[in-house]
Simulated assay, not measured.
Amino acid sequence: MKILINRQVIIASFVAGCIFGAFFKVVENLTGSRVYTLLLNVDYIPIIKNFRFPEVIEFIFHLIISWLITAVLCAIRNKYKWNNSMLMRNSVFIQIFIGCMLFPTTIFSKRTPIITDYFALSWWLIGHIVYGALIGILLKRKNS
């Protein structure tokens, strides 16, 4: 529980989550690839999928998930005593894994890219790499 209210976790998750969201919004606006829509999509979550939320609420959901992912990553870092380079590498790999696991949720929505949209998948994975690197940078320990 303490890790959830850790100042570094809160700041890292908020900053990285906002940059991640802004990156996808720009990509979607410039290319038409619906990666921002996919980021905010909840069409695969039972019960919640029955509601339409304003964009700001969907973005808050995204930031909550960012906070939880960052807290888990920080807890793992602490448990296994990762140094900063291990944190960076593992953060990026974990985000690539998460991106690969989430992209197939496109099959549950008509608003998101189709599962065979490799252009969208490429942007999606690039965004997750950027997010993982940001989390790795923002969670660095000063003396590691």
Score class of each variant (00 low, 15 high):
Gly99Thr: 07
Leu87Tyr: 06
Asn41Trp: 06
Ile98Gly: 07
Ala120Asn: 12
Trp67Thr: 02
Ser144Asn: 10
Ala12Thr: 09
Asn78Phe: 01
Ala12Glu: 00
Ala71Tyr: 01
Tyr80Lys: 08
Lys25Glu: 10
Gly136Asp: 10
Lys110Met: 13
Ile135His: 13
Ile96Trp: 11
Gly136Glu: 09
Asn143Lys: 10
Asn6Phe: 01
Phe59Trp: 14
Thr70Gly: 01
Asn143Met: 04
Leu87Phe: 11
Ile76Gly: 01
Tyr131Gly: 05
Tyr44Phe: 15
Ile114Tyr: 11
Asn143Pro: 00
Val42Trp: 08
Glu28Trp: 10
Leu30Cys: 04
Ile137Tyr: 15
Lys2Gly: 09
Ser91Asn: 06
Ile126Ser: 08
Gly21Lys: 08
Ala133Phe: 12
Ile19Val: 15
Trp82Met: 15
Arg77Phe: 05
Glu55Thr: 14
Phe59Asp: 05
Thr106Cys: 15
Val26Tyr: 10
Met88Glu: 07
Phe103His: 04
Leu68Val: 14
Val42Gln: 10
Phe53Leu: 15
Ser13Cys: 06
Phe97His: 01
Ile126Arg: 06
Phe14Pro: 00
Ile60Leu: 15
Lys2Trp: 05
Leu102Pro: 11
Trp123Phe: 15
Lys79Thr: 14
Ala22Asp: 03
Gly21Asn: 07
Phe59His: 13
Asp43Pro: 08
Leu38Met: 14
Gly127Arg: 07
Pro54Val: 07
Ile96Gly: 06
Val72Leu: 12
His62Asn: 03
Val56Ile: 13
Asp117Gly: 02
Ile69Gln: 02
Phe23Leu: 11
Leu4Pro: 05
Ile98Met: 05
Ser109Trp: 03
Asn29Leu: 13
Leu38Gln: 10
Val15His: 02
Ser33Ala: 15
Leu4Thr: 04
Asp117Thr: 07
Phe24Lys: 05
Phe108Ala: 07
Tyr80Glu: 07
His128Lys: 05
Trp82Ala: 08
Ser13His: 09
Ala16Asp: 02
Thr106Gly: 13
Cys18Glu: 03
Lys49Val: 00
Val92Phe: 02
Ile60Cys: 13
Ser91Arg: 05
Ile5Arg: 09
Arg34Val: 03
Lys81Tyr: 00
Asn78Glu: 13
Thr70Ala: 09
Ile94Gly: 14
Leu87Lys: 03
Glu28His: 01
Asn84Lys: 08
Arg77Asn: 15
Asn90Ser: 12
Ala75Gly: 12
Ala75Thr: 13
Asp43Ser: 15
Ser91Val: 10
Ile5Asn: 06
Leu73Val: 12
Ser13Leu: 09
Gly99Ile: 10
Asn84Ala: 08
Ile137His: 09
Thr105Ala: 10
Val92Asn: 07
Ala16Pro: 03
Ile64Cys: 15
Glu55Ala: 11
Ile48Asn: 00
Ile107Ala: 10
Gly32Thr: 08
Ile60Gly: 10
Lys110His: 09
Leu4Gly: 05
Cys100Asn: 02
Gln95Arg: 01
Ile60Lys: 01
Leu121Tyr: 11
Lys140His: 03
Trp123Ser: 05
Leu39Glu: 04
Val9Phe: 01
Ala22Thr: 06
Pro104Gln: 04
Gln95Met: 15
Arg111Asp: 14
Lys25Trp: 14
Arg7Gln: 01
Phe14Met: 14
